[in-house]
């Protein structure tokens, strides 16, 4: 094998290192590896599919990370839900600063195996959120837990963490 052909391998593998990033996301979508949740359109939900024989406890957690002067809480701490039905949970965020601040929420679902069946029709995640000084805002999440979820899961945790986007 000529050295030039060999040199192509490291170049390809360097590219592959970066390709691991989207590949990892695809892998996570399939397996729920990192607890990232799915998102579906409201129209896709089939109301007849509700499985009332099963009850799952969904718990809500809210965290703020460093640098963000926000108080962030779920209005209800937990809900009993049936797979297939759409529910709404509200999170309240309040700025304790006098200036305008910017944050962004990152969701996470645990256990990982539940994440692939945890779908949100409305969500405030991954979008920049601006709060004026001392503003309070209620943010709804509408979600449905797929009926295909494993029988081994009776308890799910949905967590949001707000990260600061303020530069400086």
């Amino acid at each position: 094998m000529s050295p030039l052909k060999l040199a192509a391998i490291p170049l390809l593998m360097f590219g592959f290192g970066f390709a691991l990033v989207p590949l990892y996301d695809v892998f996570c979508d399939i397996t729920g590896l990192n607890g990232k949740t799915g998102r579906i359109e409201a129209a896709e939900i089939d109301a007849s599919q509700v499985d009332t024989s099963r009850t799952i406890e969904v718990r809500f957690l809210a965290n703020t990370n460093t640098g963000l002067p926000w108080d962030f809480q779920p209005l209800v701490k937990k809900m009993e839900i049936h797979p297939g039905q759409v529910y709404e949970a509200v999170f309240r965020v309040r700025s304790a600063s006098d200036r305008t601040t910017l944050g962004q929420a990152v969701p996470s679902v645990s256990p990982g195996l539940a994440a692939e069946h945890f779908n949100k029709t409305e969500c405030f995640c991954f979008t920049e959120q601006e709060l004026a000084g001392r503003e309070t805002l209620d943010m709804p999440v509408r979600f449905v837990v797929g009926t295909g979820i494993s029988d081994n899961i009776e308890q799910i945790t949905l967590s949001y963490t707000f990260f600061s986007l303020d530069k400086g």
Binding site: L11, M13, F14, F18, V106, F163
Partner: peptide, 25 residues
């Protein structure tokens, strides 16, 4: 070795060029 180079390059751009490969925020 190129995958390691990719990893440290991502670190570098995360640190200085505003990417967020490894930053949950």
């Amino acid at each position: 070795m190129p995958v390691l180079a990719g990893a440290v390059t991502m670190m570098l751009t995360d640190r200085h060029f505003g990417t967020s490969f490894f930053d949950a925020a």
